[in-house]
């Protein structure tokens, strides 16, 4: 067990209905934020459920805050959770929600709960069932942040939030991370959030980890190439990810190391995180027309050991500038 890690999954395999997670390995050092990105159905929620002990795994092992999962019940004291749906009684008022969950937590901070609700513009007298999707997300975030958790696990927390609320959430997470013992796993479709807050990024596609590493490593791992309609037709040995060919031009993403193999006729650019997610998400349905060479392995195949465990400065600290 490694106490320097907020969590780790090693070779995890799990089945959820017809969906399968295959050989999922990722880890996050204590004190950092990991963005977990992938298209709908890629396996983000299943991975998170495995991490939380809500989904039985068939292979591999999982550790959270130094404890093997399934771990002691007390471990739940240290994990704040926001899932992609709410799970409290719709007829409860927000004050009753607090009264319902408070007895279970040794370090429940009622003042923090009320402060967060106020910050989010939620009335303690409001009923859960009367809240909008975005307000429900805020309520769940307030619950997760009110029992002095050391690890926050958020599954699509910003999907129902307007830009102002998302900004507030990023700020609140920034405050949470001021304590170096705090860590966050944050799954989302909204990549701009991750560009602000993510230290590490993990990309998942079709139940497999495509990439896991620091944000800079992810951004450095790929290049977007653009050319005329006749370019990228004979790219032997280069994997073209998310190839799009039209009458006026062609564009694709390639592993960064392969970009120079494409010659000088194409324009090579560093992709945005969104471009990486979109192109990898569409990878399965894309015909690359290229053979796979020794230098064009999918990044996941040589990136399954998790991020480096350097305890130095956070790799990305944009949120601190808030």
């Amino acid at each position: 067990m490694d106490s320097d890690l907020a969590f780790s999954l090693r070779g995890v395999g799990a089945t959820a209905g017809s969906f399968q997670l295959r050989d999922v390995s990722l880890s996050l050092p204590v004190g950092y934020v990991m963005g977990f990105v992938g298209a709908n159905g890629a396996g983000k929620t299943t991975t998170i459920r495995c991490l939380l002990g809500m989904q039985q795994i068939q292979r591999g092992e999982i550790e959270v805050l130094g404890h093997r999962v399934p771990g002691p019940v007390a471990l739940r004291q240290d994990v704040g959770v926001v899932l992609d749906h709410d799970y409290v009684v719709g007829d409860w008022r927000l004050s009753e929600v607090e009264r319902a969950v408070r007895p279970f937590y040794d370090h429940w901070d009622g003042r923090r709960y009320r402060e967060l609700l106020e910050e989010f513009g939620l009335d303690m007298r409001a009923k859960v069932g009367d809240l909008s999707r975005g307000m429900n997300v805020k309520l769940m975030i307030a619950l997760a942040l009110s029992h002095q958790a050391r690890l926050l696990v958020f599954d699509e927390p910003t999907s129902g939030l307007d830009p102002v609320a998302r900004d507030e959430l990023i700020g609140i997470l920034g405050d949470f991370l001021l304590d170096e013992g705090h860590s966050v796993l944050f799954s989302t479709h909204i990549t701009t959030d991750l560009e602000r807050i993510g230290d590490y990024l993990t990309l998942i596609h079709a139940g497999r980890i495509v990439f896991t590493g620091t944000k800079e490593e992810v951004l450095d791992a790929y290049r977007v190439v653009r050319g005329g309609p006749d370019d990228l037709t004979d790219t032997v040995g280069v994997e073209l990810i998310g190839l799009r060919r039209t009458a006026t031009g062609v564009e694709a993403m390639v592993p960064a190391a392969d970009a120079e193999l494409l010659g000088s006729r194409v324009v090579v650019e560093r992709p945005t995180l969104e471009e990486i997610v979109v192109r990898i998400g569409s990878k399965a349905g894309t015909k690359t027309g290229a053979k796979t060479g020794p230098n064009s392995r999918p990044v996941a195949e040589h990136a399954d050991t998790g991020p480096t465990r350097s305890r130095g400065r956070r790799p990305a600290m944009a949120w601190r500038n808030k």
């Binding site: 939380l52 019940v73 739940r76 749906h85 799970y87 409290v88 279970f104 937590y105």
Partner: peptide, 18 residues
């Protein structure tokens, strides 16, 4: 009955509770 309606099984799974 309410647990099914409100997915309290998830709440039970999140709370520190055996």
């Amino acid at each position: 009955q309410i647990s099914e309606k409100a997915d309290l099984e998830t709440l039970y799974a999140v709370l520190p509770l055996t």
